[in-house]
Amino acid sequence: MQKKILIFSEAFGSGHTKAAEALAHSISIQEPSVHTEIIEIGKKLHPITSNLIFRTYMQMITRCPYVWKKIYRNLSQQMQATPSWLQLLIYQLFHRNIERVLEQSKPDLVICTHPFISSSLSRLKKMGYPVNMCTVITDFHAHLVWIQHEVDLYMVSSDDVRRQLIDSGISKHRIAVTGIPVHSNYWSRESKLDVRNTLNLKNIPTVLVMGGGEGLGGIKQIAHSLIKWKERIQLFICTGYNDSLKVSLERNKQFQHPNIKIVGFVDIIDKLLDASDLLITKPGGLTCFEALSKGVPMLIYQPIPGHEEYNCNHLVKLNLALRIHHWKEVDDWIEKLLCFPESFDQFYKHIEQFQQKMNPLAGAKAIMDLLFHHEVTEISYEKRRGIHV
């Protein structure tokens, strides 16, 4: 009988769903007979609530970032795993009736790429609802909301995250260091010159500026700081879904220059990384792993308080990226790019060492091992209906 995997994501930014898509793709390469389905489950079950909470979160991190930072750190420091009250709150807000989706799909395995889903499924499992589950941590840090003792397999980005889970009581046998899933388009780097020709770009030093799907990370400040270099570098600015930012930059005459390209959300980030010499970005887990896979040095600017600060600290500690605290620092690095390119050799060296440890199919292999060799729960889906949640 054909095995079926259900991958649950959330529409909170684009990274979690992109990771889900990348993982589904690698599974199809590793074992084509396995059927996978991706669902942004909160959006499907309770779209109004999910959208409202996401917008509230966005307002908080942009207008009151230190409030969010305090909430994030206080939760993380007080406990080692998600408390029951928080699991219940997440379930009631986002995932009421998720068991109906499971009963309709009858998956052999459920993979979660967002901590909220992992929390809700763990709550159901704790109460006797049988589900085999894998959780993919899409950051370089394991906040307590990720930590659930009911998870059968954790896929993590690094040895540091593995140690954090072990310290929180997760058995080392249930953790696989696989990296963050990225699409096969990122598994190798194409010729910089060929890609630039394909994209009709000049063969000059190229800087890519991104702020995730929502166009955050101080893109506007960085873009304005780079204008003075527009005769000597090629500038590609990706504003994501932030249409107002895209329009405001396009209308500014200073940005109307043949060496400056401004785009919204695009599906050719792999090509843009191939064409780039430097990436300036906020440190979303997936974006950073894509850049590392392509071997592009990163300057990190304005990380979101909480998980992105931890991502930033991890990357800086390993000399895989450099954090800039003020947009004026960009000038120093552009000058180095143009006049002293050997300044980036330290980053290339450490990125290459990082790449040597990467196996892009490690995640799919770990999942296949769980799917085909794990002891599958024998309780039928019909028996789940009697469980009060």
Score class of each variant (00 low, 15 high):
residue 193 L to F: 12
residue 20 A to I: 10
residue 384 R to N: 03
residue 299 L to P: 07
residue 223 A to D: 15
residue 13 G to F: 08
residue 96 R to W: 02
residue 123 R to M: 09
residue 12 F to L: 10
residue 244 S to Y: 13
residue 119 S to P: 00
residue 132 N to H: 07
residue 26 S to L: 06
residue 67 V to Y: 11
residue 292 L to S: 04
residue 264 G to A: 09
residue 365 K to Q: 14
residue 223 A to P: 13
residue 381 Y to T: 09
residue 28 S to P: 03
residue 231 E to D: 15
residue 239 T to E: 12
residue 57 Y to S: 14
residue 114 H to A: 09
residue 353 Q to F: 00
residue 349 K to S: 02
residue 154 Y to R: 08
residue 166 I to R: 02
residue 335 E to I: 11
residue 224 H to I: 12
residue 180 I to G: 03
residue 170 I to T: 02
residue 159 D to R: 08
residue 37 E to V: 14
residue 24 A to P: 11
residue 60 M to D: 09
residue 179 G to Y: 01
residue 336 K to A: 15
residue 129 Y to P: 04
residue 140 F to E: 05
residue 373 H to A: 06
residue 9 S to C: 14
residue 309 E to R: 03
residue 154 Y to I: 13
residue 319 N to A: 13
residue 310 Y to D: 12
residue 64 C to P: 04
residue 389 V to A: 05
residue 351 I to T: 02
residue 49 T to R: 15
residue 279 L to N: 04
residue 146 W to A: 05
residue 137 I to V: 12
residue 365 K to C: 03
residue 331 D to V: 05
residue 382 E to R: 07
residue 336 K to D: 12
residue 144 L to G: 01
residue 32 P to V: 10
residue 277 D to H: 07
residue 343 S to L: 01
residue 351 I to D: 01
residue 253 K to C: 06
residue 275 A to G: 05
residue 20 A to T: 10
residue 381 Y to H: 08
residue 252 N to P: 04
residue 295 G to E: 08
residue 219 I to L: 14
residue 83 P to Y: 00
residue 346 Q to P: 00
residue 271 K to T: 04
residue 15 G to M: 10
residue 61 I to N: 10
residue 205 P to I: 12
residue 340 F to E: 15
residue 176 A to V: 00
residue 131 V to N: 08
residue 102 L to V: 01
residue 249 L to C: 12
residue 71 I to T: 11
residue 291 A to T: 05
residue 385 R to L: 06
residue 149 H to Q: 07
residue 189 R to P: 06
residue 192 K to G: 05
residue 22 A to S: 15
residue 304 I to C: 08
residue 2 Q to P: 14
residue 27 I to P: 06
residue 287 T to P: 02
residue 185 N to F: 13
residue 19 A to I: 13
residue 348 Y to K: 10
residue 103 E to I: 02
residue 331 D to M: 07
residue 264 G to T: 12
residue 121 L to T: 03
residue 59 Q to W: 14
residue 250 E to F: 09
residue 389 V to G: 01
residue 1 M to R: 13
residue 208 L to Y: 10
residue 28 S to E: 14
residue 62 T to I: 12
residue 143 H to M: 04
residue 9 S to T: 15
residue 45 L to S: 13
residue 18 K to F: 02
residue 327 W to D: 13
residue 327 W to K: 15
residue 246 K to F: 10
residue 258 P to L: 14
residue 200 N to R: 13
residue 147 I to P: 07
residue 382 E to V: 07
residue 258 P to Y: 04
residue 307 H to M: 08
residue 298 M to F: 04
residue 298 M to H: 01
residue 276 S to G: 10
